[in-house]
Design a protein around this nucleic acid. Structure first.
Length: 475
RNA sequence: GCUCCCAUCGUCUAGUGGUCCAGGACGCCGCCCUCUCAAGGCGGUAACCGGGGUUCAAAUCCCCGUGGGAGCGCCA
């Protein structure tokens, strides 16, 4: 049997992190077993479904690299098929028309709640032979078995049993004839030949209803795997207020998709003590049986750690492409500076995110706006201008502008002036970057280029001399 | 309220009756390295929710409690 999984989001918002993991697990399972992965958009609620949401979901999937073999399918395009199955169910007595008004249903629910009972339909129309007098358009309800139990052999929960008495006759088609969720899922899973349903455990309670409908249709239910929820860092339910709820927020915050995917796969799933997984490794190792049954909380610092890991170890050209995008959002032209791959090499080990990397690299593209006050006070003391002037002079005579040559020159000046490396490198750093932090000074200058370096050194020397005069004039 | 699910360091987790006075990772703390910031190396801190069983033996199995979560829509 060929494995076939699906991801079935409803387009009522962006692709959030929990949905992304569900999609990832489904994708992984299909890939692992050489099966197929389908994307199905559950848009039967026309009131709430939007095209923007569809696009946001597609964009999120694409960014994560989760490709699908079939789809995207839209449920709104299968209404004829749902109608057909509905008629069949009606004909065979597995479903019936219900004429109860919303008012009656609301009142019923309230009464039951007041009596501390579980709200459920009381079956008034279950055995009707004719429509009642003056009845409006009926909804269609599934005739749910009233006795016995429904067993779900869930791959992550184990065997879960439900008393059928707990399950009422759910509505499978609205008064306007449109089908509802629990029905369309069943029909689509059946028609598409879905073998494994991997979804959030908020659907666990729907499983017995769906299994019963499938049974009425004479079909064996798929294998279910209900995966636990993802909570925010405080163990609370995720909401839009949680820093990054949408996967696209993670892109905007400077994460690499492979870091997000690696982070997500380890949330609820593990393979011994291994933390780092390439996509290929995930595909060959992933299994439903290793999914944890308990909910997990987001751990932002671990994601940051993973992101830096990928920043450091991925192909610099790949990282460079992402960095270029972020530089662009900061209003910088990535072509108007050092070679990006070299920049990535220099900055990766001091960046947790691409945003951080881009911001800390700004001085390679634009003149620093003044000097960091504290850094200048510490490194631009009187004699610093002499040091910088000497460095400038030595550097000006350098023909091969590369890191090792630059290193030699800077070291030479330090020896000549009998200064420690720090006393020379740090003033240069502040002079060229405007602040106290940059990659190693030789690399920084190599990246910056000779002309820019000399120009900034000159500017720093005159800055120091000017403020030096000012200070010595003071009483 | 009813039904269903869950429960190991702060967090992600390993652990499937003995090899566990519980292992790894992130974070945190300390040391080393060092031109800054980092990165890296080394070391440290920290957990089996509680109570009953079962068993020669329980983090691992069972029951109860407690705590968390989900569902109970003409939403998905």
């Amino acid at each position: 049997m060929t494995v076939k999984t699906r991801f079935a989001p409803s387009p009522t918002g962006f692709l959030h992190i929990g949905g992304a993991r569900t999609a990832l697990f489904s994708w992984l399972y299909a890939r692992r077993h050489g099966g197929r992965f389908v994307l199905r958009v559950e848009d039967t609620d026309r009131e709430r479904s939007t095209e923007e949401a569809v696009n946001a979901i597609l964009e999120g999937m694409a960014w994560l690299g989760l490709d699908y073999d079939e789809g995207p399918f839209y449920q709104t395009e299968s209404f004829d098929r749902y109608r057909e199955v509905l008629d069949k169910l009606l004909e065979e007595g597995h479903a019936y028309r219900c004429y109860c008004s919303r008012e009656r249903l609301d009142a019923l629910r309230e009464e039951q709640q007041a009596r501390k009972e579980k709200p459920r339909y009381d079956g008034r129309c279950r055995n009707l032979t004719e429509p009642p007098q003056g009845a409006g358009d009926p909804v269609i309800r599934f005739r749910s078995p009233q006795e016995g139990q429904t067993l779900i052999d869930d791959r992550v929960r184990g065997r879960v049993s439900f008393d059928n008495a707990e399950l009422d006759d759910l509505i499978i088609a609205r008064a306007d004839g449109s089908p509802t969720y629990n029905f369309t899922v069943v029909v689509d899973d059946m028609d598409m030949g879905i073998t494994h349903v991997i979804r959030g455990d908020d659907h666990l309670n729907n499983a017995p209803r769906q299994a019963n409908i499938l049974k009425a249709l004479g079909v064996t239910p798929p294998v279910y795997a209900h995966i636990p929820m993802i909570l925010d860092e405080n163990g609370k339910k995720l909401s839009k207020r949680t820093g990054a709820a949408s996967v696209m927020d993670y892109r905007d915050q400077g994460f690499l998709p492979e870091a997000v995917v690696n982070y997500l796969v380890r949330l609820g799933w593990s393979h011994g003590d291994q933390e780092i997984f390439s996509l290929d490794e995930m595909v060959s190792l992933f299994d439903i049986d290793e999914i944890n049954a308990s909910a997990s909380s987001l751990n932002p610092s671990k994601l940051l750690w993973l992101n830096q890991h990928y920043l450091k170890t991925s192909d610099p050209a790949h990282v460079a492409r992402h960095l270029a995008w972020h530089l662009g959002t900061l209003g910088v032209d990535p072509d108007d500076g050092p070679a990006l791959e070299a920049l990535v090499d220099a900055q990766a080990e001091r960046s947790k995110t691409l945003v951080e990397m881009a911001r800390n690299s700004l001085f390679f593209y634009c003149e620093p706006e003044g000097y960091d006050e504290k850094a200048a006070r510490k490194n631009f003391k009187g004699e610093a201008s002499t040091v910088l002037a000497r460095v400038r002079e030595a550097l000006a005579g350098l023909d091969d502008w590369d890191a090792s040559a630059i290193h030699g020159v800077v070291e030479g000046v330090a020896e000549e002036l009998e200064l420690k490396m720090g006393k020379v490198a740090q003033p240069i750093r502040v002079a060229v970057s405007g602040g106290p932090v940059s990659p190693p000074i030789d690399q920084t200058l190599a990246l910056l280029g000779k002309a820019t370096t000399l120009r900034r050194l000159d500017a720093a020397v005159s800055h120091i001399e000017k403020s030096g005069e000012f200070i010595s004039d003071a009483p």
